[in-house]
Design a protein around this nucleic acid. Structure first.
Lengths: 252, 252
DNA sequence: TCACATTTGTCCGTATGTATC
DNA sequence: AGATACATACGGACAAATGTG
């Protein structure tokens, strides 16, 4: 933690070619010169434009692809296309952090509980009518699934996504999104959510929406806690079975 | 949001070669077969082992490097070395999300305030003696810097890092870390922190540590809010000058 | 100080798979 | 079905970096 030479002194030696290429392209994306949906020139064309070899272009594209800035398709009319968001990749990397550091699921559950209650606070302050409507529609959709005896797992997760969005705070939205990614991954491949549990969740979600519409915060918080407790219970049951991520880690 | 075929039906066609290579290596890292500090075989050796071309190996290594799983050096005794954490890369990608979506700094500031107060709650519940000691040492270090008339910017940021760690919740630690990355980036290249402000921050931090030691939570929260308000004020001044990230975005 | 070996970095030529027209 | 435009992949070659004797 001494003097931070790393930021004071920049390397004299030039970066690797593919890094220069990928960073240049990133700049163009950040600046809005390259907009989502736009198609980049082909690899050979890019190589000629940058005066570099195809290998360097390829590696640069790999970097951008992994970060989520572009997607690449084969064939004519294929190529690299600019993406509008990299949230999925961010969530994926958080999941990797989780796995790599063998983070305890318990930590994640507790953080989620605390943060979502926080989010609800923002929601009560900032949510617009459309947000309440979106949440209500989500519940309707979940009910529809349940009526045909299918559990509404995806809808339940989406509810919490929508709730985060209703906070009108994008930072919080992102944070919730990456935490949900861990929960989704942990639940995937598991036995489908029992209909009974799914119905209860739909009830909880509906109660939250109505409390929100009626501006009863305390009630909403209470139901949200119950909802999260139910999700936690289910996850714990699974964790006991397949747990490979027990050991807590405080170290960086 | 209909049936999620994407997860139900996996593509029949095989993945790209470099993806298979990178995923295999990732598995080996997750499983603990490859441990931090360990050096991978050379690119040509890996190409022979996987029965693929060197190009594919290189692209796989690029992917792993960007995700933070490995670092690569040139020269004899160089090569790919397994890393222990990918937190830096995760924070970097969050910063990219911030820039790409032109997230408002205001959002980030408000989220930080709320989350750090939350963190403090965890700290009062879970912090051990060593954590308090680490925080105290950080303040001492900041004071030392100030005595030689250097502002202790890095130490101030580290204080909040240490605080997050003291929560003993790694998920929260990660969340704080990625948010701090935005603040660090925003402050970098700016005029150095004024000594007066830096001294005040050191005072705040010291007060927080003492309140923690004395188990006076309300007092700690109050000082923390002041501390964050000061940081906010400084950042706002900067934001007005160089702001390119104003427009709020709710869209995904 | 200097030569050497190792390993990454880069480029090129070529062949193949794939999607569109 | 065939032509095309593109990414994907391979192998060979040389340059650049870097540690070692």
């Amino acid at each position: 933690m001494a003097t931070d030479y790393e930021t004071l002194i920049k390397p004299v030696k030039s970066k690797r070619t593919f890094e220069e290429v990928s960073e240049k392209l990133k700049e163009l994306i950040f600046s809005g010169t390259l907009v989502p949906g736009q198609r980049l020139p082909s690899e050979v064309a890019l190589a000629q434009l940058f005066h570099v070899g195809r290998q360097s272009v390829r590696e640069a594209l790999r970097v951008l692809e992994l970060s989520g800035f572009i997607t690449v398709k084969s064939g004519v009319k294929g190529g690299a296309v600019i993406e509008g968001t990299i949230l999925t990749k961010l969530a994926g990397l958080f999941l990797d952090t989780f796995k790599l550091n063998r983070m305890s699921l318990q930590d994640c559950i507790e953080a989620r509980k605390a943060i979502e209650v926080l989010v609800l606070d923002f929601v009560f302050k900032n949510a617009a009518k459309e947000d309440v409507e979106a949440l209500r529609n989500n519940v309707v959709e979940a009910r529809r699934m349940l009526q045909s005896n299918r559990s509404a797992f995806q809808e339940h997760v989406d509810f919490h996504r929508l709730l985060a969005r209703a906070s009108k705070n994008y930072t919080l939205t992102v944070v919730v999104e990456i935490i949900l990614a861990v929960f989704s991954d942990f639940s995937s491949g598991y036995r489908p959510l029992a209909l009974k549990e799914s119905r209860q969740m739909a009830d909880f979600h509906e109660a939250i929406v109505e409390a929100l519409a009626a501006k009863k915060k305390a009630a909403a918080v209470e139901v949200l806690r119950k909802d999260l407790a139910l999700a936690e219970k289910r996850l714990r049951a699974r964790a006991r079975l397949t747990d490979k991520t027990r050991r807590p880690r405080t170290k960086a």
